[in-house]
Design a protein around this nucleic acid. Structure first.
Lengths: 134, 134
DNA sequence: CAGGATCCTAATCGATACTG
DNA sequence: CAGTATCGATTAGGATCCTG
């Protein structure tokens, strides 16, 4: 018979609701949108310009999602042609420390991976595209 | 003719490599794995026990991915039946501040969403599964 | 127990075309 | 300009079976 399962020594996951934030930032774009709104309000087309590879469909979907959660506010401008402006709400600004932390760690990881080459997996096997050196 | 595009006023995305961290934590499970390794080393089966809904296939894939990046170390234990233990490396511990920040913000978001119900989207349209109340 | 192989479903996203 | 609708490609992840 094998080793007994150990319960987490000090504390199991002590009620850690970061899953919500992960779900929120899930997808390739949401965090980038928040980042690009961190300085000032931006219009739909400006955001597309800031992130040239996002499609209108996805940008629209993410913005509606963030709006539904109260993280951004949408202001329709009555100009011609019409435009809409998006801004972080106070609640949305709560996400900025997370993004800041990710940016700092990202720096560090990049510099480490620059020193040592990223190890190949032990055996050939499934690795997602972003892990295969693209 | 419409409003001119505004360049980001203060600074555009001033070189923010959080995309790497996002790519790293992409998927529903990677951050949880790091979290569960934050206290002490855990074996494969213990991690499965900690996260009952992860499949062996995905857990294995994520562990190999984190190992390939030098964020966790794998130690094969010579017991019978064989087992393997995974632990965060020093580099992997750099991720903990990010996860801590996510946990804090997650708390806050949950409490806000508890006060006001989450707004429905303005029109019926695509919302991801995790946004539809699951 | 650790984990690979296969099959399959659901979700994400880009491209394109179209509307107000 | 600010979106929406449709389509097809890619991917994450679960279930199941199988091996050392």
């Amino acid at each position: 018979m094998g080793l007994p399962l150990r319960k987490s020594k000090v504390a199991p996951p002590p009620a850690c609701p970061f899953s919500e934030v992960l779900a929120l930032l899930r997808g390739a774009w949401t965090a980038n949108i928040v980042w690009h709104l961190s300085r000032d309000a931006r219009r739909f087309g400006e955001l597309r310009h800031d992130m040239p590879r996002i499609s209108a469909r996805v940008l629209s979907a993410r913005l509606r999602e963030l709006e539904a959660r109260g993280l951004i506010a949408r202001h329709a401008l009555d100009s011609s042609p019409p435009s809409a402006e998006y801004a972080l709400t106070e609640l949305g600004r709560e996400l900025l420390p997370v993004i800041g932390a990710m940016a700092r760690v990202g720096q560090k990881l990049l510099s480490e991976w620059g020193k040592h080459p990223v190890h190949a997996p032990r055996r050939s096997g499934e690795l997602p595209a972003y892990a295969r050196g693209g």
